[in-house]
Design a binder for these strands. Sequence first.
DNA 1: TCCCGTCGTTGCGCGCGAGCAATCTCGCTC
DNA 2: GAGCGAGATTGCTCGCGCGCAACGACGGGA
Lengths: 230, 230
Amino acid sequence: MSRLHPSLIIGAPVFAGLDAGALDDILSRAQTVRLSKGDLAFRQDQRADRFFLLLHGRLRVTRLNAEGGQVVVRFIAPNDLFGVGMAIGAATYPGTATAVVDSLALVWPNSAWTDLVAAYPSVAVEALQSLGARLQDTQERVLDLSTLNVEQRIAGAVLSLAAQAGRATEDGTLIDFPLSRQDLAELTGTTLHTVSRTLSAWEAKGLVVSGRRRITVRDGPGLEVIAGKN
Amino acid sequence: MSRLHPSLIIGAPVFAGLDAGALDDILSRAQTVRLSKGDLAFRQDQRADRFFLLLHGRLRVTRLNAEGGQVVVRFIAPNDLFGVGMAIGAATYPGTATAVVDSLALVWPNSAWTDLVAAYPSVAVEALQSLGARLQDTQERVLDLSTLNVEQRIAGAVLSLAAQAGRATEDGTLIDFPLSRQDLAELTGTTLHTVSRTLSAWEAKGLVVSGRRRITVRDGPGLEVIAGKN
DNA sequence: TCCCGTCGTTGCGCGCGAGCAATCTCGCTC
DNA sequence: GAGCGAGATTGCTCGCGCGCAACGACGGGA
């Protein structure tokens, strides 16, 4: 088994402030998983016996309800911890994680979590912070769904994705992973039809350039006016 | 200053598994706050310098957005920890906590949090679990807002409140604190008008009995059929 | 290179639920 | 006990955005 190098996880907030020895110890318990585009890291309601850290790529987490309704919970970026069902007291994964591009992750068995927080208490504190940030985001989303109209929500989602995964191009800020109209609809609580109409209208106004699973923000401030969160 | 008795916090999940000495130490850092109906424990965007544990009563947490839209984030029950902005890395409170009945809480300065998690690591672990549960709930709410119609959402909210704060009466299960149509609307992402119409229709069918800020569930299974989460 | 599947676009009609307004009633306050 | 204000009810209308359907187009794979 090949040795993993500490530089792999030095950028991850969960392990911030730990020394090389600690990182080495942590890595010695991990394995790597390759996920090709479309592969699942875990499936909703499956027993949550492992947790992950994304090294490279991008994952989409979706959640289904009994009637077949589905939402996109979030997109996972490199250095994000995910699938921590056990740490938060859930026996099963609350959603399904799908690679939207070829990705690479580290994976630990659940038993490692207890050991890690015991040996390195800062890990629990950092996990608490990151979970808190996710709770804030999710509450913000509830507020948006309850009080904003569809166009405002789509604008907000596009801006937030551009901030999270934007890459500067000559046309503007490209959201740097494949994102379908359906994904955006499930992120904003609407239908792909309405998203498609909205993006077409924005494109006519020169606010964005969009293509098949690609969106480039050309006029960020213009979108912010639409989003109306000033 | 009068001594606080450990039995006060023995039922709180955050402090589960700690011995009498530990509880005593924790209590020695706390003060009590009385909140009359309508009083605020903290206000949104105010500096988050204290955290609380509810001993008795009920609080409503609301969150506002820039346009004046408002949602009810949650209702706080006795033994719930709340206002833990600092633990999750937020400098300010993300919402406003209002007492809906006369209430009593313990309060600690933020500095106590660091000491507590250092001295009693299980506190961080328990906090992580409770935060995880709240994240699950909030994500569920996003799913509901995105995929269910208004009547289903109201039914779900009423059932969940009855489960959280229900008291058996001769008429059925009474939600045991003042809950206005407006509250229920802000909890389900609709308007008080629609909530009022819906409750009237349910009352005509014998599913609930409702009055001024009071709702009694008469036919729980009937509401579950409407909620449709089977 | 062709083919096929996935993804995107757009038109049309309808229904849910918002918005507005007027009235009613309960219950707290002095 | 009287008065007042917050909360609840209900009718009416209108529009946003969903649902359906049909077509179009891009791009990956053999």
